[in-house]
Design a protein around this nucleic acid. Structure first.
Length: 401
RNA sequence: GCGUCGGUGGCGGAGUGGUCAAUCGCAUUAGACUGUAAAUCUAACGGCCUCGGCCUACGUAGGUUCGAAUCCUACCCGACGCACCA
């Protein structure tokens, strides 16, 4: 495959959704313009069962680079995931077993393939860092460890903060940046891409490359999706969008984002041209209703992660249920015998967690029978045929036989 | 190994014999207002029932007591200090 050196595309790669480039944007630009095929990797630690929107930001960037003809490597940190990246964790994360890790990454490839291509003439290379860490001897490891000092590692604000708060930092955590850095060496890549929160780790890899391979690895740090309080939208927070969610859920999640995130989200996730975004930003400052734009963003994101059709469906569904207070299309349906208390059905369907919760919901006026738009006030009602709404977004359709 | 302090609900963090299912803050859920936004206000926030109670919970296991998150013993885990080892 020929390397595309279209300056416009390259400019987009260098700027859109990018927080920082090391050693410099010009350095990378020259590389991209050189016509040389570059190898670039993204490392993901499979610490959860699914990828999330945070990963999408990087995957989209990678997709662009793949289109330009470069060699993309997706590295599964099956070993590093077991240790746990201490980034942004004020307490040491629980260590995972290798089995848990392997279980987690089952879906990863499938989900990633929405953004980068694993076949065709320039396929993504899928790697696991157990390939080298699995057979690294303790001596080798010490050798590697001798490339970093405690002082260097302690530069991470993370570790500093823990120190200040008198929380513990384990030695294996201190090793983490070196391990991630060694991934670069083992893969012998030209560059790495990752979220801005990974900058420190990525730069450790850059240093190692210089020492061990005498190579200038470039590092692309992407912007992060942060909410109004500056919190990362990560898998540990409730506001995260994970890729295994249904189109409807995903759409709803995006709709519940802060308004400030609209333009930001468009920029770092979607392909909507920057000129269009500028236009939207202008309209927003002039007082346009942000909801419309958020709808567009939600649709765009669902369309990327699922498909255009599903995005349209999700949008209609959203309109219907929330804007118009109706019932969504894909409500779970159950058939029950006569004289079954409504609670029991909801409990077996796992819509509610306990009878106590149910009582609270009924007391709070959160339960409605949709056909008559009647509020349920008696916690002991027997289920009747109909559609019930519990709270804002829980629905169930019941058919009494 | 010795000593000191500490381990409480999703998190942070009170509570030091009964009135403690445990103040409070955050998070969460629901209601009002809306745009399933934010802000705000209200309420709920271990479980179960006939709403008066019952059961299970304050690191783990025992014990003292009419009664324990609170006292005692042992054990586990952590922080700090000292020692040991160099």
């Amino acid at each position: 495959m020929k390397i595309d050196i279209n300056p416009e595309k390259i400019d987009e790669v260098l700027t859109r959704g990018i927080e920082n480039i090391f050693p410099s944007a010009d350095f990378l630009k020259a590389k991209l313009l050189s016509g040389q095929k570059l190898s670039i990797y993204l490392g993901i630690d499979p610490t959860g069962p699914t990828l999330h929107l945070g990963h999408v930001i990087q995957l989209v960037r990678l997709g662009k680079l793949q289109e330009l003809g470069h060699q993309i490597i997706l590295l599964m940190g099956d070993i590093t995931a077991m240790i746990g990246d201490p980034t942004d964790k004020n307490a040491a994360r629980k260590k995972l077993t290798h089995e848990q890790v392997m279980e987690n990454l089952k879906e990863y490839k499938k989900q990633a393939s929405k953004f980068i291509s694993f076949d065709g003439e320039n396929p993504v290379l899928l790697k696991f860092n157990s390939e080298w860490f699995g057979k690294m001897s303790f001596i080798d490891f010490l050798e590697l460890a001798s490339n970093g000092t405690v002082g260097q590692m302690m530069k991470r604000d993370m570790f500093r903060r823990r120190e200040q708060e008198e929380k513990e930092t384990y030695i294996h955590e201190l090793m983490y940046p070196l391990m991630q850095g060694y991934d670069s060496v083992a893969l012998d890549v030209d560059g790495e891409i990752g979220g801005n929160d990974q900058t420190f780790n990525m730069l450790v890899g850059r240093d190692l490359m210089k020492v061990l391979k005498n190579k200038e690895k470039f590092v692309i740090a992407t912007k992060l999706l942060v909410d109004s309080s500056g919190q990362k939208m990560g898998k540990t927070d409730g506001n995260a969008v994970s890729l295994d969610q249904t189109p409807e859920d995903m759409f709803g999640k995006v709709m519940s984002w802060d308004d400030e995130l609209i333009i930001h989200g468009f920029e770092i996730i979607t392909d909507v041209p920057m000129s269009v975004l500028q236009d939207m930003a202008d309209k927003l400052t002039k007082g346009a209703n942000p909801k419309e734009m958020k709808m567009k963003l939600a649709k765009e994101i669902v369309s990327m992660c699922h498909s255009q059709e599903e995005a349209e469906r999700a949008e209609k569904d959203f309109e219907k249920t929330f804007a118009k207070g109706g019932v969504p299309d894909d409500v779970a349906e159950v058939e029950v015998a006569e004289n079954v208390p409504l609670v029991d059905i909801l409990l077996t369907e796992k819509i509610i967690e306990s009878k106590t919760e149910w009582r609270r919901l009924v007391d709070g006026g959160a339960v409605t029978e949709m056909s008559g738009v009647e509020k349920i006030t008696d916690a002991n009602v027997v289920a009747k045929t109909g559609t019930y709404k519990i709270g804002k977004r829980r629905f169930i359709k019941i058919e009494v036989k």
